[in-house]
Design a protein around this nucleic acid. Structure first.
Lengths: 222, 222
DNA sequence: ATCACTGGATAATACCGCTATCCATGCAGG
DNA sequence: CCTGCATGGATAGCGGTATTATCCAGTGAT
């Protein structure tokens, strides 16, 4: 198919597709002539991957570039691939070597040990979590992550990993890994807020089930 | 304290503090004279709240403005306050009234019903989740959110809500609500990635991930 | 009175994702 | 073959956002 068709099928403007080509997010089409190139289903699929990572996962374009590079690198083991996705998802927390930081990191490592997890020291999520703990303490929030760790531990072990099609072609498995991390991450977050709203309504008593001030809860900016 | 002291204690540059004052994120200090104003602990605390929402929660400044306005509005019930936080957290998904959208929304509503949740139709998380489902289907991912819903449901009911100090002064409770949503949301996400890494290492059982460095972000020559 | 410092107003900056403009093709219909 | 519209590629520009730099007049300690 040609670029215009690719654009039509994906809903991404041509100018934007050109941008992705420039940035190396999308592989070049098969060159037919100086002003003619052909794209196929793989480009369409890649485009959907990009948009999902961008719009749902909120990944910056530079990070997506990393991810697709890893996806395309056939020599990369799946586990490493997952690490790349995690790295792209993590927002580069700057290490301040303060007392608080060390303490928070220690707390995180205790939690990791308590769950029996095996985590490499360079894992981005480790630093990110430590950073979050620092913030929580700054603000005087009670910090108890154990129930959260237990919940995701079960989820990952009992559900998520079983869904990855390890026996499928590599790119399929890889996409499932990356997309699972990103899309289900968002889904989990949205679900949590739904649960919160429901429980909040129940406890703080917007009394009857047929919500009286339904619109108030999500009222648009004043 | 003066602005420079506020800056020193919070780690936020003076110019940035001035910006927050302009934007109404941070209340004005007590004016002592034309070129002299005094700030106190409440400003420091507010500044930390802002930075937490900004850096950890990734909220845009405009959304933070909404949140602090709600926090400061004494007349707002707690439940409504939570709704405001949720609204600020959600990234305004645009409704395309397509077939897929309707179907995804239906699936989300079935899930909500299955869990017995009480959710207002305008809940931002509802649309966000539907959007995510649409993307998942586009990409051919299997979509089964039930285990996720169950996990967060338990978490919210058994842990999160019990931590909110409803009997404390309003602003304390309000901050706990907002920060709980935002900070624990991030924490949950980071924990999930930790669990994934651990489980991935166990199942795919291999060498540790490459601990990619920041320079790699721009290094690869296409 | 002086001078370093403060707070406030305004303009400039950096980055990012995207978009508009140009231009040399290139295929299609006559 | 010739004409004309569409294509792909290169380049420059736009719009939004968070932040920062510049100016300036007022203040208070010395």
């Amino acid at each position: 198919m040609r670029m215009s068709e690719l654009s039509a099928k994906s809903g991404v403007p041509i100018a934007t597709i050109k941008y992705y080509l420039r940035e190396g997010l999308l592989p070049q089409g098969r060159q037919l002539a100086a002003t003619r190139a052909e794209y196929d289903e793989s480009h369409l699929r890649r485009l959907r991957l990009i948009r999902a990572l961008l719009e749902v996962g909120r990944l910056p374009v530079a990070a997506i570039k990393q991810v697709v590079a890893a996806v395309d690198d056939e020599s990369l083991p799946l586990h490493t691939m997952l690490g790349t996705a995690h790295y792209a998802l993590s927002p580069a927390v700057e290490h301040e070597h303060t007392e608080e930081w060390a303490s928070a990191l220690q707390a995180v490592d205790r939690l990791i040990a308590a769950r029996g997890w095996h985590i490499t020291p360079g894992a981005p999520a480790r630093a990110e979590l430590a950073q979050t703990v620092v913030r929580m303490r700054h603000l005087g929030l009670p910090v108890d992550l154990h129930p959260y760790a237990e919940a995701v531990d079960r989820l990952v072990k009992e559900v998520e990993m079983d869904k990855i099609p390890f026996d499928a072609p590599r790119d399929t498995a890889v996409e499932a890994l990356v997309l699972g991390t990103v899309l289900y991450g968002r889904a989990l977050d949205a679900l949590r807020r739904l649960a919160q709203e429901s429980e909040s309504a129940r406890r703080l008593g917007v009394s009857p089930p047929p919500a009286p001030d339904a619109s108030a809860a999500t009222a648009p900016p004043a």
